[in-house]
Amino acid sequence: MAKRIDVSGLNAYYGSHKAIDDISMTVEPRSVTAFIGPSGCGKSTFLRTLNRMHEVTPGGRVEGKVMLDDENLYGPGVDPVSVRRTVGMVFQRPNPFPTMSIYDNVAAGVRLNGDRVRKAELDGIVEKSLKGANLWNEVKDRLNKPGAGLSGGQQQRLCIARAIAVEPQVLLMDEPCSALDPISTLAIEDLIGELKEHFTIVIVTHNMQQAARVSDRTAFFNLAGVGQPGKLVEIDDTERIFSNPSVQATEDYISGRFG
């Protein structure tokens, strides 16, 4: 199911401001790749170019190529809506639909895909997705209650269940734990470890221990100064990035010495 992402020569802009400059990298299928770097270095922007969410921002524009196996996401005639069905996303703040029940939240994406799904089939998808997000046991008796009534950590797992219900090839996570307490964070990290069996996962995080714990590969982004575009400094196996990175700037950032 999972697909390889191959980015080459990618630039992203906000209006006339260049946010990321000439990024090329490969993300392996069925693995977790973490993006780390200081605020403003463009890692979230880059993540959003991978499912064409960047262009939703007014003035947002992208140049370059993102290959998902052998399909260019920015090729002519590619529908961004169908890209987003293949590349799912989880956001920083848990954002279940407040007017929908837990069940409807998980089913939302499936119902979008147009064709009428039979009730029994939908029940199966909802159960499977909630189990996949380690949430089933906590919510199985109150599927018809509003999703907004759950705790922050449960809401985030509900969002993950919603994202995996449509069976995407890739799952993008934009600082998924930064609004959560340590216990909920641990639950999400465990979940990420399980999800990588089925999906290609890319996670942006400010927490370097988290990157070290959950990821197989780590990419370090940096920017030369305020107002300068962000750049990819290096991407390597996580173990190597955290023990013996090949660029000095990476080591400075990881050990807390920057500038």
């Binding site: 499912n51 969410m53 939703v56 809506v81 169908s82 987003r84 069905r85 799912g88 996303m89 956001f91 703040r93 954002n95 279940p96 639909f97 407040p98 939302a108 994406g109 979008l112 895909n113 969002c159 919603r162 994202a163 449509v166």
Partner: peptide, 17 residues
């Protein structure tokens, strides 16, 4: 809220959806 619009977009919703 923008975050709910983005949630729908990321699921592959069209503008009307």
């Amino acid at each position: 809220p923008k975050m709910h619009e983005e949630a729908a977009l990321a699921l592959g919703a069209t503008r009307w959806e």
